[in-house]
Amino acid sequence: MSPSIQESETVAPVDNGRSWIEPIFNYLQADILPDDRAEARKIKAKAAKFCILYGKLYKKSFTGPYLRCVTPREAYDVLKSLHHEECGNHSGARSLSNRAITAGYYWPTMRIDSQNHVKSCDKCQRFAPISHPP
């Protein structure tokens, strides 16, 4: 018998085959581009900010180390770890996304994902400070 999922617990996103990493990785590794010229130009422009090290895609950073690019499923695990588990302190959305960058991870929707993750956390919503404007 499997444990039931509580209403407040978020469910990890499902990878539907292609993630945002694949086109950039394919271009950097094997020089493979899509047939659409506009899309190919976008990928070429984006790929200038990335590199491949030890078979993983990394984003070049101006001030810090390279940031490891993660899929949506891995991003959910990173947010969950930083927010709830052993290194978590139920921080806010902006702080959570900054902690993910400091931990060395990157994905394009990290700000929105961290906002959604904090909004779905029952403890954060229950014990959040409530302002009472006059």
Results as ranks from 00 to 15, higher is better:
residue 44 K to T: 10
residue 41 R to A: 11
residue 79 L to V: 08
residue 72 P to R: 08
residue 86 E to L: 11
residue 27 Y to N: 05
residue 30 A to N: 14
residue 52 I to F: 02
residue 71 T to E: 05
residue 75 A to G: 15
residue 35 D to P: 00
residue 106 Y to P: 03
residue 107 W to G: 02
residue 32 I to S: 00
residue 114 S to N: 02
residue 41 R to E: 11
residue 35 D to T: 06
residue 69 C to V: 05
residue 64 G to Q: 09
residue 50 F to N: 12
residue 79 L to A: 03
residue 64 G to W: 04
residue 132 H to I: 14
residue 46 K to D: 09
residue 73 R to F: 13
residue 134 P to H: 12
residue 68 R to A: 05
residue 84 H to E: 15
residue 70 V to L: 07
residue 100 A to P: 00
residue 1 M to A: 11
residue 108 P to Q: 04
residue 13 P to T: 02
residue 111 R to H: 06
residue 25 F to M: 11
residue 131 S to G: 13
residue 96 L to R: 01
residue 18 R to G: 09
residue 61 S to Y: 05
residue 73 R to H: 12
residue 118 V to T: 03
residue 91 S to D: 10
residue 43 I to K: 04
residue 109 T to G: 10
residue 25 F to H: 07
residue 55 G to E: 01
residue 10 T to G: 09
residue 122 D to W: 08
residue 82 L to T: 03
residue 44 K to I: 14
residue 39 E to H: 03
residue 57 L to Y: 07
residue 79 L to M: 13
residue 23 P to S: 03
residue 122 D to Y: 09
residue 121 C to V: 05
residue 129 P to G: 09
residue 82 L to Q: 07
residue 10 T to K: 03
residue 113 D to A: 01
residue 70 V to T: 02
residue 92 G to Y: 02
residue 129 P to E: 14
residue 32 I to D: 10
residue 113 D to Q: 03
residue 89 N to F: 09
residue 123 K to Y: 08
residue 96 L to V: 04
residue 42 K to M: 11
residue 37 R to Y: 00
residue 127 F to R: 12
residue 104 G to C: 08
residue 78 V to Q: 03
residue 120 S to N: 07
residue 129 P to Q: 14
residue 111 R to D: 09
residue 81 S to D: 14
residue 82 L to F: 10
residue 110 M to Y: 02
residue 98 N to I: 04
residue 85 E to H: 08
residue 106 Y to C: 04
residue 53 L to K: 09
residue 76 Y to S: 14
residue 4 S to P: 07
residue 46 K to C: 04
residue 47 A to Y: 11
residue 69 C to Q: 03
residue 101 I to W: 00
residue 93 A to S: 11
residue 106 Y to L: 07
residue 62 F to I: 12
residue 89 N to V: 09
residue 49 K to F: 14
residue 40 A to F: 03
residue 44 K to E: 14
residue 131 S to Q: 14
residue 73 R to M: 11
residue 22 E to R: 05
residue 80 K to R: 15
residue 107 W to V: 01
residue 45 A to C: 08
residue 76 Y to A: 13
